[in-house]
Each structure stands twice: as C-alpha cells, then as structure tokens.
C-alpha cells in the first residue's frame, strides 16, 4: 500500500471495507453477525449499497469516486472539521461532511455539483492562503483538481514572531476597527525545534486535529498536545506552550505519522530538507517487523543513500493501525551509526 492512501487518495477503493471503518472509542464492540444489513442510496445518480453504520464517504468509495479528505483518517475518530469532503445531500439545507455522515436508506447524494466544487475549492483557498502547504503533495493535487487560486485573497501578511501566535488572547485581536487595507492573515511563524527527534512547523498546520487524536484517545493515550486558543488563533499546543521536553510527550511519533502537511516532521527529514539533500525519488521503502518487543509492529523503513531517514508504519497493520512507540519510530539511530 502506498503512502498516499492515508489521505484518502486514489487507491483507497482497494482497501478492505473493514479498514475504512473508523476505530470506535472505548471497549471493542461485539461484532454484528454477518452479513450486516445493507443500506441502499444513490450517489451521483448511481445506486450503491453499504453496510448499516457506514458513512457516505464509504458509499462514494464503493463507486470509485475519489472524495478528498484532510482531517479524516481510517484509524481515527472523525472530527469533521476541514470540510473538504462535503457533499450535497437532497433535503439538507447545508452540505454534509461525507467522512462522518452516516448513510441512510434513500439518500440522494451529489459529489461533484457546482455547490460541492465551490465549497471544496474555497476550503483549499482559505487554507492555502493562510498555511504553507509546500510539503503537502496531496493537498497540492487537490488544488489542481479544484482550480484553487489562494492568491485571490491578497498578499500574505508578515509572519508572526516566535511565540506571538502562542500568546494570542481569545476574543481579542487588534485590527479591524479602522479603515486600513489589510493583508491576508496567515499562520506563518518560526519552526519549533525543541528536541532531537522531530520538529513542529506550525506554519504548515491546517488544524486537522489528527495529531491531537493520535496523541490522545485514538492511539497513544498520552495527551501531550491539545487545541488551544480560539478562532483563527486556534493552534496545537502543549500546556502554556512549554517545550515538548517538559510536556507529557513520549516521542512515539504517532502525531508525525498522521500529519497530512509535514507540519510535524522527523528531525532527520527536516535537516535534510534544510540542507537540500532530501530526495524522495532516491529513497526505498522496505517493510520489516519491529525487533524491539513482542507486539510485532510492521515498520516501513525509508532509506536514502544507505541511511534510514524515517520510519513509518502502514495503517492497515491490524494490531496497531499504523501507530508505533519511540523505539520502533526512532530507535534506528544506532543503525545509521554503524
């Protein structure tokens, strides 16, 4: 399975149906006896059936319709915040998020109407005009697909100084009362480099909540990071923006694994990019089993010029759904030092 699947790109229709159902929180549910009840609905005029409880995105995927997603991931609880997956549902005043809206019998859904395209394009433009998406190839592909022109919103405002966005006060900003022409506000800010394993470049953060979920209830149960602030000042933060080294972080890197934009990045990759030596086309990816403990996680080892440059784990991994711990994720430094 290729990397791109995690954002719901092209090959997703090949995923086993089970892999697309988000992992419920809490104790494992008792599985209904198969075959479960099927629900019939219409998507873009075509009939499709999905198991009861399935979401609209699953219906679109059964028809090989590639629905864009940013905040949705098969192994996380849907937060439905990015709104790029919206579809038009007959009888509903607003569009609905296909990643979380459950299919109901008789629904009539449009996935490529004028309204759908407008909202998707606008989501892309709003994000790309305020966030650095240069290390988000999937995002850029969506921009081409929907003809997004973020420059319509004007010249980007100057980046924030270090700590400035972290110090924002909810409900208070200091512009907007006068008649001065504005530049397009953005989340540009210096990269946070506070440990040797990974960096946090929140100027690339689209606030998809995935890292928070991966760090919390959906995988790691560490809760080192949360969303702080409000409105456009909302951001991912530790308590009082303390460095990761003072936070609860255990460096499992599961947040890196789910980040769709490269905002969270291995320090190795970050440094190589800075030095201009990062070259994905020259990299190989090899699956292996993590040697550290008995869980047996699958590791995908990314190697460039005989050096391990990062480690990921396939999301379809049945035991851990692509999540790892510090040893599997980062415990390869010694390999490089032989």
């Amino acid at each position: 399975m290729s990397e791109t699947t995690r954002n719901g790109a092209t090959p997703l229709v090949q995923l086993a149906p089970d892999a697309m159902t988000p992992i419920p929180r809490g104790p494992l549910p008792i599985l209904p006896s198969r075959p479960s009840k099927m629900i019939d609905l219409t998507v873009d005029g075509r009939a499709v059936s999905v198991p009861e409880g399935a979401t609209l995105i699953e219906a679109t995927r059964r028809l090989s319709i590639d629905t864009p997603t940013l905040c949705f991931l098969e192994n996380l609880t849907p937060v439905n915040v990015c709104r790029i997956c919206v579809v038009e549902l007959e009888g509903s005043r607003a569009l609905v998020p296909s990643c979380s809206r459950k299919a109901e019998a008789g629904m009539k859904v449009l996935t490529d109407s004028e309204r759908v395209r407008l909202s998707r394009r606008m989501v892309l433009e709003l994000l790309a005009s305020s966030v650095d998406v240069s290390t988000a190839p999937q995002f850029q592909e969506y921009m081409r697909r929907y003809g997004a022109h973020p420059e319509r919103f004007g010249a980007a405002a100057a980046p924030a100084n270090e700590g400035e966005r972290d110090a924002a006060v909810p409900g208070r900003h200091h512009t907007g009362h006068g008649h001065s022409a504005a530049t397009a506000a953005s989340v540009a800010q210096p990269v946070k480099v506070d440990n040797d394993l990974y960096v946090r470049d929140y100027g690339k953060c689209i606030l998809c909540y995935k890292c928070v979920e991966a760090c919390g209830e959906d995988a790691q149960n560490t809760f080192a990071i949360a969303v702080a602030g409000r409105g456009f000042d909302a951001r991912i933060s530790t308590e009082y923006n303390v460095p990761l080294t003072e936070s609860a972080c255990v460096y499992c890197g599961n947040c890196i694994g789910v980040c769709p934009t490269g905002a969270l990045m291995f320090k190795s990759e970050f440094d190589m990019r800075a030095a201009g030596t990062w070259n994905e086309t020259a990299q190989t990816q090899t699956n292996t089993i993590c040697p550290y403990c008995g869980v047996g996680c699958t590791l995908t080892v990314h190697v460039q010029a005989d050096k391990i440059v990062k480690v990921t784990s396939p999301m379809e991994q049945p035991v851990t759904n692509g999540h790892l711990c510090i040893k599997g994720r980062f415990g390869w430094e010694w390999v490089n030092q032989r």
């Binding site: 989501v123 005009s129 305020s130 530049t183 409105g231 456009f232």
Partner: peptide, 22 residues
Amino acid sequence: DESCGQCVPCRVGVVRQQELLQ
C-alpha cells in the same frame, strides 16, 4: 473574535471576510 476555530470555512472565512470589508 468569536468563531470557535474548529472548521476551515468559518475559521479562515471570517478573517477573509473582515479583510475584504477593510
């Protein structure tokens, strides 16, 4: 000031609307 900031159309949209009116 009052958008919760959760969803993209509103979080960024209200900022772009304000800039446009300015």
